[in-house]
Amino acid sequence: MFSVPPSSSPAVSLQPIEELPPKLQEIIQLFQGVQEPKAKYEQLLFYGRNLNPLESQYKTSENKVQGCVSQVWVRAYLDKDRNVIFEADSDSLLTKGLAALLVQGLSGQPVKEILRVSPDFVVLLGLQQSLTPSRNNGFLNMLKLMQKKALQLYVEAEKDDDSSTVGKNLVENSNLVMNGENGGNGGLESSENAIDLKEGLGNQSVLGSRGKRIKEMLEKEIRPVELEVEDISYQHAGHSGVKGSDGETHFNVKIVSEEFEGKSLVKRHRLIYSLLQDELQNGLHALSIVAKTPSEIDTL
């Protein structure tokens, strides 16, 4: 699911490790020190065994991660300093390990730092080779739910704070923008050009010009039976690689097509990258891809 293009394609930059939360940096460095895929797998199981179980009262549909092969639940709340604390659980030890990795790496961070985390950090972990595509997809869905819950907590907290003009504007206008260059209000502020709250929570129905071009190209050349193109550039606002761009720099793509029959994951990704060469050479920084055949659609 998460991959970088082959050497013949333009380099796709990953989020610098220095921009990730400190605990997540430590976890990445730990996994990078483990060379064997089997050893990485065992490390995940270790994380799973040591994750505190989630109380049954929190195993609700609202807290359940969609799109996972196993059942996964995520709970989030704010501490006294308005940092986000996560709890999670799963009926699968391996998936529980993935959840534990995110819980440890993201807990105790302010909302703006959690929203800045790009899903491509799994490449830095080196886990994409140790997990099946469905596990990788579930891992992405866990992260997205955590970011969604963090954003909801922020809006609710600011709504209750009568002294916060920014909080009032966020709730009244339902707009959110991540501004990494102006930290005057913690990196969150309302704006005429702000990303709509629903879009920030994963609604990819409204795309800019680049997103529309990507969608049109894939529809024309691959003839998908299912296609989702999601602009997640808001997560990278203020990153050095984004400055000076048109703002459409990072996308999630989920595509189901018969064109992928008989092709390995690498060949599927290579096909998509080749079709989007022009975009990659002109400001598109990263793609996170889920490419399936119709017969594999049940694993999405």
Rank of each mutant, 00 (worst) to 15 (best):
S3T: 07
P5S: 15
S7K: 14
Q15P: 00
P16Q: 13
E19Q: 04
E19K: 03
E19I: 01
K23C: 06
L24D: 01
Q25R: 12
E26D: 07
I28G: 04
L30K: 07
E36R: 13
P37A: 03
P37W: 08
K38I: 12
A39P: 03
Y41D: 03
Q43D: 03
N52T: 06
P53E: 10
L54P: 03
S56T: 11
T60Q: 13
E62T: 12
E62I: 11
W73T: 01
V74H: 01
V84P: 02
I85R: 14
A88Q: 12
S92I: 09
L93A: 12
A99Q: 02
L101G: 02
V103M: 07
G105S: 11
G108N: 02
Q109P: 00
P110F: 13
P110D: 10
V111G: 02
V111F: 06
R116I: 00
S118I: 00
V122H: 06
G126C: 05
Q129A: 08
F139G: 01
N141Y: 05
K144Y: 05
L145H: 03
M146Y: 09
Q147R: 06
K149E: 02
A150S: 13
Q152G: 08
E156Y: 06
E156M: 05
E156I: 05
E156D: 11
E158A: 04
K159V: 00
D160N: 07
D160V: 00
D161V: 06
V166K: 14
N169W: 14
V171G: 00
V177R: 14
V177K: 14
E181N: 08
G186N: 14
E192I: 09
E192C: 08
A194Q: 12
A194L: 13
G200D: 07
L201F: 13
N203Y: 15
N203P: 06
N203D: 14
S205N: 15
V206S: 13
S209I: 15
K215Q: 12
L218Y: 06
K220A: 04
K220Y: 04
I222D: 00
R223Y: 03
V225K: 07
S233I: 04
Q235N: 09
H236R: 13
H236D: 00
A237Y: 05
G238Q: 09
H239R: 09
V242N: 01
G244N: 00
S245E: 00
D246Q: 01
G247M: 09
H250Q: 01
F251S: 05
V253G: 10
V256P: 01
E258M: 15
E261I: 15
K267P: 08
R270C: 08
N282L: 03
N282F: 07
G283Q: 06
L284V: 05
H285S: 05
A286W: 06
S288M: 11
S288V: 10
S288L: 11
V290N: 09
V290E: 10
A291N: 05
A291L: 07
A291Q: 04
T293W: 01
T293I: 05
S295V: 00
S295D: 02
S295H: 02
E296I: 04
I297K: 07
I297S: 11
D298S: 13
